[in-house]
Design a binder for these strands. Structure first.
Lengths: 129, 129
DNA sequence: CTTGACCTTCCAGTTACTGGAGGCCTTATC
DNA sequence: GATAAGGCCTCCAGTAACTGGAAGGTCAAG
């Protein structure tokens, strides 16, 4: 398979696949003409990466997860720790965003949104203290 | 006030304040020795920026909001549009994160987290299709 | 007069790509 | 055989919003 084929089949842009090679997540072979030649195993790794990224894991998490995936002597505790830490970061992020959402919803609801300059949103942002 | 004072009073790191000057959000005067001299108005702007950033507005949103804040002929509709759009992006982000959270919670709960290699998390990431 | 806390600028690094320039390879068509 | 389209290559720059650090000037205290 050439890069276009694995891009189609993994759902990842070709640019991203080249980038993953550059940072050492995959190591496809090369043809005589310099083209990357992807084996099924490469595609499988890319699909793994695509799913892990879709769950919000960082690239470094992905690197660790991939290493564990390929290590048959792994302890599931190591995988679980990575996932749990990531889940906690996601929960913290959701909490942050919800706080913003609450405040913004209030402010947007309070704003007339007409041609007049009076605006509760700006009043809040510019309040003293 | 020197930069350390406004950093303390605005809650923003000095580095960030210098950065905000660099990108044209503020324009403090300079003393003869080259030090930035901040007026109360500069501090007020920085506090405005700190609050807008805390609500998750992008720097470009902040720039627009600050311009509206200082324009007495503004229409509150312009402010409201920026805030509503931002709120929508936040809501979309929350939805994304919640989907990740749901999946991750399931996977983490299903994983024994012991010394054995068997792991539902990796099984999910590596599943075919 | 030196010490330490400030302040300055400039450069590099962060995350995970993304866009684009310039150019080679392959295949099909005229 | 020339050419055009499409795919592939590398390399460079840019994104968002800072953050860290180096190298060096300034200021107040003792």
């Amino acid at each position: 398979m050439n890069i276009g084929d694995v891009a189609d089949r993994s759902g990842l842009p070709a640019k991203t696949i080249r980038y993953y090679e550059e940072i050492g997540l995959i190591s496809p072979n090369r043809d005589g003409n310099g083209y990357r030649r992807f084996a099924e195993q490469d595609l499988h790794k890319l699909a793994f990466l695509a799913r892990a990224r879709a769950l919000g894991f960082t690239i470094e998490d992905c690197r660790a997860l991939l290493a564990l995936y390929e290590d048959n002597t792994r302890a599931s505790a190591d995988v679980k720790r990575i996932a749990r830490d990531h889940l906690q970061r996601i929960e913290a992020k959701i909490a942050d965003l919800r706080a913003m959402q609450d405040t913004l919803t209030e402010l947007v609801d309070a704003c007339a949104g007409d041609a007049r300059p009076d605006c509760p949103i700006l009043r809040d942002l510019g309040r003293e203290g």
